[in-house]
Amino acid sequence: MVETTAWGVLLLPVILGLFAVGAAAFDATLAARAAGVAAPRSAALAPLRSAAGLLVQQRRRTLAADTLLWRAAGMVLLVAAVLASLVTPLGQWAVGDLSAGVVWFNAMEIVAWAAVWLAGWGANSAFGLVGGYRFVAQGLAYELPHMFVLTTAALGAGSLRVADIVAAQQDLWFVVWMPVAFAVYLLSVLAMAFAGPFNHAVSSDVAGGVLAELSGVDRLVFVAGRWVLLVSGAAMAVPLFLGGGSGPLLPDWLWTLVKTALVLAALVWAGRRVPTIRMERFEEISWMVLIPATLLQALFVSLVVI
């Protein structure tokens, strides 16, 4: 019931880009409102203004930087973030309907591990490197629960194909009977896009971490990649847990967009409500609480399926 469309290759980056700009604008508006700025509406344009500034900014150089790997980091992050959405259906169209779509999505988001580490490594700066290593630690913390959650959704449908997972939710959305999996999925989406409370890799206590020395176009590409990754994660929540495009009145592609926007807005909003979660604390929570919780959820789902 999901058909693949070739022209979607052209449309996908545009949609993701619009969502990313929208999310960044929403984030900037929330920040302006907290700071008590008189006109929060003009703050919504702040991301575009700073993007334009970065475009004309000259690159900062650091001593003995590994320029090749450093420049590659942003490109890799952006491309992988777009590719992650290759299997996400928009209503009934998807760019690629792989038989192992869920695994593909997971593989593309793992690319962020490499990209963020490279961005930290390339600058030859202590703060950047600390940020890069923090993200690897964060990856080890969120990835296992995340994988179990993806497995749980696939278990419920009995297939790794995203279209089958959507089809399995015709009667009952997965979010209803897999609430733990859904919650952990949202957490790990924030963590994999190092956004919200999981921005330890780029936090202010290490002068911006992997972003510390990134400047100009490189920084723009990297930050854009990060927002697109968050969008990709939020968009995948819709077919995995929220019934894909199903809904009354509106056409299913519109429902997908609406649900994605809601999930994205909730993630951005929640991310601002909580201070940065440091890895030494999150690691233990993740392994002692989240992994058992997701395993129990997977067990429950497999019992129901059987």
Partner: peptide, 11 residues
């Protein structure tokens, strides 16, 4: 896809 996934993690 699994090779891609595992190799990135591993490396």
């Amino acid at each position: 896809v699994l090779v891609i996934l595992m190799m990135i993690m591993e490396m």
